[in-house]
Amino acid sequence: KTVHVNGVQYDFDNPEQAERFAKEMAKKAGLQIQFHGDQIKIE
């Protein structure tokens, strides 16, 4: 899974790890999470 945070890309082999990371980042920055198939976007 790939997580995009403000244009920066983070790759994870483990989907659960990717989602946990995305939730942490979104919570910290007060941003929205969008799921697009294999990609998670935080903007």
Rank of each mutant, 00 (worst) to 15 (best):
H36C: 15
K23G: 03
I40N: 05
E43N: 09
D13E: 11
A29I: 10
T2H: 07
K27R: 07
F21Y: 03
I42K: 05
E19Q: 09
F35Q: 07
G30K: 03
E43H: 10
Q34S: 13
A22Y: 11
D38N: 10
A26T: 02
F21Q: 00
V3A: 03
I40V: 06
H36Y: 12
G37K: 08
D38T: 10
G37P: 07
V5N: 01
T2P: 03
V5I: 12
E43M: 09
F21G: 00
F12E: 01
F12H: 00
Q34H: 11
Q9F: 05
Q39S: 12
Q34I: 14
V8H: 07
P15A: 13
D13W: 02
D11Q: 13
K23N: 10
T2N: 02
G7M: 02
V3F: 04
A22G: 01
I33V: 12
I42E: 05
G37M: 06
E19L: 15
E43L: 09
A29P: 12
E19T: 06
H4A: 06
L31I: 09
E24V: 01
Q32S: 13
E16H: 05
Y10M: 03
N14Q: 04
Q17I: 06
Q32N: 09
K28Y: 13
E16S: 06
F12I: 02
K28W: 12
D11F: 15
R20K: 13
A26F: 05
H4V: 15
A26H: 02
Q32E: 11
E19I: 15
A22D: 02
A26D: 06
P15Y: 14
K27E: 15
E19N: 05
E24Y: 10
Q9K: 11
N14M: 04
H36F: 13
R20G: 04
A18T: 00
V5P: 01
F12L: 04
N14T: 15
L31K: 03
I33N: 05
F21M: 01
E19H: 10
D38M: 08
K41N: 09
F12V: 00
K41G: 08
H4R: 07
Q34C: 14
F12Y: 01
I40K: 03
H4Q: 08
F35V: 09
F12M: 02
H4C: 15
K27W: 11
A29K: 10
A22M: 09
Q32C: 14
K23A: 11
K28T: 10
A22K: 04
A22L: 12
Q34F: 13
E24S: 02
K1M: 14
V5H: 08
F35R: 03
G37F: 07
K41H: 14
M25Q: 10
H36E: 12
H36G: 09
Q17R: 02
A22F: 09
E24W: 12
V3Y: 03
D11N: 12
K23V: 09
H36M: 12
H4I: 15
F35G: 06
Q39T: 13
L31W: 12
D13K: 05
Q17S: 11
N6E: 05
G7I: 00
